[in-house]
């Protein structure tokens, strides 16, 4: 809920910066909601790593308030990523064929845009991710 409130505070600002409305990073061609439950932990682990490793660092803005909220989200993602790593180490977060394919698609969508546009679009799609993660609990 902390991530959700930080994102809600800057959602309009971030989504207004997304020039490419006809594309989605997380939902193209298939929605996250089609992922089987057995693969959910793996997808969540991979996607959180993706945001921490690739997305947030390219989301700097000229607005210090927005930057503070992005920092809040990024540090919360880092904290969750650490917890998920424990699951992965204990083999409770195995990756099947479907999650591997799905994550490849997300990376392909991301790399199909220039890095700043891709990062801002990914950040703007956080509500898609949060909705799906909360539904997967």
């Amino acid at each position: 809920s902390e991530i959700r409130s930080s994102f809600t505070a800057i959602k309009a600002n971030i989504q207004a910066r997304d020039p490419v409305r006809t594309l989605s990073i997380l939902s193209h061609p298939h929605s996250l909601h089609r992922v089987q439950s057995s693969d959910k932990c793996c997808i969540i682990h991979k996607v959180f790593n993706f945001y921490v490793d690739k997305v947030f660092k390219h989301c700097q803005t000229e607005d210090t308030y927005v930057n503070r909220k992005i920092s809040s989200i990024a540090n919360s993602f880092l904290s969750i990523k650490r917890n998920l790593e424990q699951c992965h180490i204990q083999n409770k977060c195995l990756c099947g064929q479907e999650s591997t394919e799905k994550f490849k698609q997300i990376l392909a969508n991301y790399e199909g845009l220039n890095v700043t546009s891709a990062a801002m679009k990914s950040l703007g799609e956080l509500d898609i991710l949060l909705d799906w993660v909360e539904k997967s609990r």
Binding site: V52, F56, T64, S71
Partner: peptide, 15 residues
């Protein structure tokens, strides 16, 4: 935050 130290060139954020 730890994120800034490890992933964002040890950047600082003003309050």
């Amino acid at each position: 935050g730890e994120y800034e130290r490890e992933y964002a060139n040890e950047s600082w954020i003003p309050i």
